[in-house]
Amino acid sequence: MEKNVGGFDRTWRLAGGALLAIIGVAALVGVVSIGTVLPVLLVVFGVVFFATGVLQKCVLNRLVGLDTYRGEEAETDRMDEVSTDRPS
Rank of each mutant, 00 (worst) to 15 (best):
F8R: 08
G65R: 11
T52K: 15
L66S: 13
W12L: 09
F50M: 14
L41M: 13
K3H: 06
V64D: 01
T11H: 01
W12K: 05
V32F: 06
L63A: 13
T36Y: 13
L19C: 08
V40M: 07
R62P: 03
S83D: 01
T36R: 13
L60N: 09
A27F: 10
E2V: 02
V29S: 05
V32G: 02
G7S: 01
E75G: 04
K3E: 07
Y69D: 03
R10K: 15
L42I: 10
L42E: 03
V43Q: 10
T52I: 15
D9T: 10
F50I: 11
L41W: 14
R13S: 02
W12M: 09
D67E: 08
L63W: 10
V82P: 00
N61G: 06
E2F: 04
R70Q: 14
L60S: 11
A15F: 14
V47I: 15
N4Q: 05
D67L: 13
G6N: 01
S83T: 08
D9P: 01
P87W: 00
I23A: 10
R13H: 11
F50H: 12
E81P: 00
E75V: 04
L60G: 05
V54L: 15
E73N: 13
R10L: 11
L38T: 11
L38I: 10
T76L: 15
L20E: 04
D9Y: 08
L42R: 09
V54A: 12
V64K: 08
M79T: 11
R10N: 05
K3R: 12
M79P: 04
V25Y: 08
N4R: 06
V5Q: 03
E81I: 05
V25K: 04
Y69E: 10
L28F: 12
A18T: 08
R70W: 05
E75H: 09
G17E: 01
K3Y: 05
G24V: 09
A74T: 12
T11G: 00
Q56V: 02
L60D: 06
D9F: 00
R70C: 03
V43N: 07
V47P: 04
L41P: 04
E73W: 14
F8N: 01
V82H: 01
T52M: 15
G71H: 13
S83K: 06
G35C: 04
R78S: 09
I23T: 09
L19M: 15
S88T: 01
L14H: 02
A21Y: 02
A27Y: 07
L63Q: 11
L14G: 00
V64M: 13
T36I: 08
A15W: 13
L41K: 06
G65H: 11
V44W: 00
V5G: 03
V5Y: 03
V43P: 04
